[in-house]
Amino acid sequence: MAELPDTREKLTPDTFLRGLWEENPVFVMLLGMCPVLAVTSTTMNALAMGLATTFVLVCSSMLVSLLRNWIPKQVRIASYIVIIATFVTIVDYGIQAISLELYAALGAFIQLIVANCVILGRAEAYASKQRLTTTFVNSLGMGAGFTLALLALGTVREILGNGTILGISLFPADFQPWIVMILPPGGFFVLGAWLLLFNWLRLRKERKQTEQIGVTAHAR
């Protein structure tokens, strides 16, 4: 414990933006996949689930960050879980009060936010070490990234599987929807396709970079 490096992060735009792209919880870190696949059969469900998760993520990260000096190291995981479960219970009752229809559509997956590893991961890897403000911004970014990923899946699946977006019909009346897309296999396929796209983009970028290095080296 002789030198304790200052691990506390300075607040920059990157604190927020990282969650959206570079460390996107779904597309890059592959965390919290269960709700991502299960509730994204329509855009509306995806949006609601994303917002609910973001709320729990932000609130529990902030509380963990506030209590970080008081939680004993040995029981930290249990403490985080209890904190998360508390906020999930709040969200659960909240959604039930706002819209029973939405509550029925999301089903058990609202309560299953407890077992979402994105949230526990944030608490353990970030909130337990950082100040309140950076934690707030960072977890908000992560939540936004998670919601974005859910929307990316939800819209594609709704358009293909139901021919609608947010309930508004896109195609003429005789359009035959591709029903498998709103069924379980569709979830796996669409997420797989998004990952393929991101892999392709990343590979292309890497290839361009190596080419550029090659060109500059040649010019010298």
Partner: peptide, 22 residues
């Protein structure tokens, strides 16, 4: 193919399995 390595491939496989279980 390079582009389909890792998680993308696993998810596609899972999709096929899921289709079979339907």
């Amino acid at each position: 193919p390079d582009v389909s390595q890792g998680a993308a491939m696993s998810l596609m496989l899972a999709g096929l399995l899921s289709l079979a279980f339907m």
